[in-house]
């Protein structure tokens, strides 16, 4: 089956973005396909290239980046959620006159329409890190 995953929680603060990565790995292992990963809300922090982990801890953003690159997955970071939180690529950095950029390779900044379009094409949509 084709899946869309929505990741809405930041690494470190919540377990759910790690659960999302483990779920995504399990999907591919079971022969399913991932139409798109969509990072929304605080989930945009999973796409930073600037995360540093202590030696005895895993670096979840790096793990996402390896996973996305290894499987050439379509990975979209909500642009409105990302620029608000300071996750920007070089184009947005220039546009807003910022001193650098931190969106990891393999991720695209785009709008919510990319989530809707992906859901339309998918058999299943699974949300991680919803509010309560």
């Amino acid at each position: 089956m084709k899946y869309t995953l929505i990741i809405q929680s930041a690494p470190i603060d919540h377990q759910s973005s790690y659960t999302a990565l483990r779920f995504a790995r399990a999907l591919l292992k079971a022969g399913h396909s991932i139409e798109r990963l969509f990072f929304y809300g605080a989930g945009v922090h999973n796409a930073t290239s600037h995360s540093v982990a202590p030696q005895d801890e895993s670096n979840l953003p790096e793990q996402w980046q390896q996973f996305v690159t290894q499987h050439s997955l379509d990975s979209v970071v909500c642009i409105a959620a990302a620029v608000r939180r300071g996750v920007i690529n070089s184009a947005e950095s220039r546009r807003y006159g910022k001193g650098g950029d931190n969106l990891a390779d393999g991720f695209d900044l785009s709008g919510l329409g990319q989530l809707v379009a992906s859901a339309v094409e998918s058999d299943r949509v699974v949300t991680f890190g919803a509010g309560a």
Partner: peptide, 27 residues
């Protein structure tokens, strides 16, 4: 589905944005 209070987290605003976007893309 929105389960968060309007203020205190961004979830409520983001749920509203997503509902609007979904309608805007003809669903």
């Amino acid at each position: 589905i929105s389960s968060s209070a309007p203020y205190g987290t961004a979830h409520a605003r983001e749920a509203t944005d997503l509902a609007l976007a979904t309608a805007l893309f003809d669903q």
